[in-house]
Amino acid sequence: MFRLTDEKMFRGFATFLLTTLTVITLLPIILIVIASFTDETALISNGYAYFPKAWSLNAYYYLINQGKLIFRAYGVTILVTLVGTLASVLFTTMLAYPMSRKNFKYRRILSFFVFFTMLFNGGIVSSYMMWTNIFGIKNSIWALILPNYLVTAFNVFLVRNYYANNVHESIIESAQIDGATELRIFWKIIMPLSVPVVATISLFTALIYWNDWLNGLYYITKSEYFGIQNLLIKIMNNVQFLKSGSSNFLGVGNMNLPGTSVRMAMAVIGILPIILIYPFLQKYFIKGVIVGAVKG
């Protein structure tokens, strides 16, 4: 009886704390969403407000005008995120697993090899030269997937660490005695045990690919291959630019460009898909809890 109350109390306490934290976290974001629906002049004379004096859909009209571009860019980004994340998870777990094995001869060397990449890099110039001249990926979808993010030291260490602490050497030993090959052990035994950490790194990698605009900036000049972040950043900066006194060149009737509210609307558009997809991804975290339980 006593134990139950203790647990209940703790649960209540946790709910309370997390609710508070969530509200605090969300307030600024709600402000952005509201700002994206606020009339531009009201935004400037009264500042951002939770209850603005005048509402307006202009920012979204402006974005809808760019319709075809935005759809295509979403397509590019979704494709890149899916392929990139899948490949990344595979490469990362395969690299991390041997590093986690205590009796693997090259364990330390390999760890150092991986970690070193986190500290030193040759800079953008040399990697640009290599990717474009040797691999010729400029202006292709590979340019958005291959450079920089496929295997990151951070993720490798997360996974290695997870294996080292959650996969008992004894499981592997018994499989070895049964005569399973290393690849089979990895695929049949290790992978099913990795659900929580795989969920974690897929999420991280997906976020990286989703939010990336640097690869697009460096390797893409053809607008067919712009991802959503590249497009948003371009529009955002162009709008800013047109607003800055140079827009006399817009010709007659001057487009009435919304400024700040458009930028906010873009922020909303950029995160919207993630908000929609994330709850589906999340069940794997919960599943992770169950896997852990079954194992015991």
């Binding site: 693997f104 030193f120 890099n121 800079g123 990697s127 290599m130 990895f186």
Partner: peptide, 29 residues
Amino acid sequence: LTKSGPLLLIALPGIIYLFINNYIPMFGV
């Protein structure tokens, strides 16, 4: 029982990627 060879083989794709993506461009320093 644990031979390093097969394990190294599993790690190979990752090693190659890091070598290409991170080590080759280090001449940039």
